[in-house]
Each structure stands twice: as C-alpha cells, then as structure tokens.
Design a protein around this nucleic acid. Structure first.
Lengths: 163, 163
DNA sequence: GCAGATGTTCTGCGATACAGACGATAATAA
DNA sequence: TTATTATCGTCTGTATCGCAGAACATCTGC
C-alpha cells in the first residue's frame, strides 16, 4: 500500500484515458446516433422508467440542461423518443422511447457491451469483469454523497467528451 | 458473471460520473492553478522527464495541441514551467519545471492524493486501494494497444472535462 | 389570489476540440 | 547540394459544450 505521500496522483489521468478510449470505441459502435455516447445514455435512462423529466436526465448524465434540450430535439427528430407533458406537472416533459427507440436501444446496448469488453480486453478476463463491476459500484457510491460530489461539472466534457 | 446480453452497458456512465466527481474535487484542491486539472497533468508529465515536447504531452493528456499552446503559455506566465528549444531538434520545445513549479507540484500532488482518497471514500479502504490500482493498470493497458484506442478523442472533455 | 420555487427553452459568453494553414526545422531522396 | 516530404509549434476559423441569466409556463404554499 503506497501512502498518500508516495503516490503519483494519476487516478485522474487514468480515468480520462479510459474514458477517451471508451468514447473512441463508442463512436464507431453508435454510428449516426444523435449525440453519440450522450444520446445512448439518454436512451438508456429514458428506457429505465425511473426518471422521466429532463432535469433528472441532466443530473444523471452530467449534461447541461441547455444542451439536453437540443440533444432530445435531435433524438425526437430521429423518431427514437417522444416528449409528452407530464399530466401531474405540466411544466415537465416525460421523455419516453418510441418502438423504434426501444429497438435501437436494444441493438446499441449489445454493441456497447462489446465496446466495454474491447476496452478492457488487454486485461485478464476475470480482472476485467471485476474491475468493471467495481467501477460501476464506485460510481454509484458517489450518488449518495451528501456533499454532492457527483453534480454537473463543466470540464469533464472538455477533456473526455465524444464527438 | 453477467453475459454480454444481460449487462446494461453502464461502464461509460460510471467512468463519466467518477471523472465528474474527480474534477469537482480537483477544482477546490488546485485553486488558481492555470488550467486546473489539465494544468496539473501537464506539470506531472513535465516533471517525469520522460517526455519533453508538446506533441508528447498532447498525446499523453489527450489535449489538443492548439489548446496546449495556450495552457503552457499560462503555466509559463505563472512561472511554473519554461519552454526551452530542444538542442537536438529546434522545432520542438522542451517543457521543464522551474523551481517554483517543482515546489508547487509537490504541494498539489499531496492535495490531489487526498482528492483521490475522498473520491473513493465511500468504499471500504481496501476496496478503494485495489480499485484505484486496477484503474491505473487498465488505463496503462490501453497505451500498448496496437489499434490506438487511447488517442485523442474530442468528447471525453465535453463530458468530463475539468475547469 | 399572490409570492416564490421549479421545469424548459432561449440567448450570450467563454472554453474547448478539430481541421486547416503557416513558418521553421529536420529527414530523406534525387 | 538541392528538392521533396514530414514534423513541431502556432495561429485562424468553426462547431460544440458548459454555464449564467432571462423569459415563460406551471406548481406549491401562504
């Protein structure tokens, strides 16, 4: 165990490098999906009925609400989602998948799982599986953070955004 | 072991969430360092005499060379680094730390290690240590990738960039 | 009803990635 | 040597994105 003093503080670099690799592979896998990896995230969230309105999608993805407006516009134009007014609160719009969106998401999820496998393909299989699970667990641990570590931050995108 | 079909393809979201958290905490820890987390990465690379010129720094950090020009300008103005022409190839500039830069980097590395600890502080200590090491290992595994998975990608930043 | 809060959209601004051009320099070929 | 090509750093122009703030509709609480 390296002590704090001895370590090189390269977790940030490592996360950035992994995310860059992920986004690069995603770009191929997602083809012309509006918004690329961001669009895929929005579809995934919309599919999990857990959150309907744009504010929640913005918080979950870390995207700015102003960008989300246009991203959802594009997904809607592509016929993958629809905005429907929430009957309980007409200020907010529920974003739900169309049939075409559901089908597209199913295809893309399979391809994105392959992307994840490829990203970690240099690691021993078991290591890759457990690392993947551990990363997901660590990310979820931030959600409960009372200090709100996981809120939207400007620059994640600037460094790691996908085209 | 979830099969590819059953998984949710949320590694990308998780990496983004972790990086957002990291960048948020970094912003506090780095104060007025030019370029924030990006500036810290440049200082770290300049300190490891391994790579001197800007092209190598750009490749390692995933930053665009045009942005790097201005970022290094700012670090130079702050008296933390100096650009010196490489005597062996006068096209390229070696970026080296000044004494003040070395001192600053030492302080900041300590603070950034604390940031990494805080980021994973919701996990059991041993899990956090091994996860951190595994992430760093996985990131380095991309470097050797013959397919060049780890090259500069636009959007990592858009999603995960630091302020 | 009224004041304040919230959800969405729009505008303006700054930061960033990217493509492309440029000049200086280096490496290679003729 | 000379000419061609490639590389490094810089600069310009364009598009995208995060963010602050305003506007509008709507909800909540008084």
């Amino acid at each position: 165990m390296a002590s704090t003093q001895e370590r090189q503080a390269d977790l940030g670099w490592s996360l950035g490098a992994l995310l860059r690799g992920y986004l690069k592979l995603s770009a191929e896998a997602l083809g012309d999906l509006p918004g690329g990896a961001r669009g895929f995230q929005v579809l995934s969230i919309a599919a999990s009925n857990s959150c309907g309105n744009q504010a929640q999608i913005a918080e979950s993805t870390g995207l700015d609400r102003t960008v989300l407006t246009y991203l959802i516009d594009d997904l809607e134009k592509a016929g993958l989602v629809v905005r429907t007014p929430d009957p309980n609160d007409r200020r907010s719009r529920r974003v739900t998948l169309t049939d075409a969106g559901t089908e597209r998401l199913t295809q893309l999820t399979s391809r994105m799982n392959q992307v994840e496998d490829r990203l970690l393909s240099r690691l021993p299989r078991d290591d890759a599986d457990s690392l993947r699970a551990a990363i997901v667990r660590a990310a979820h641990s931030l959600d409960d953070d009372p200090e709100g570590v996981c809120e939207t931050v400007d620059q994640v995108t600037a460094e790691v955004t996908s085209a």
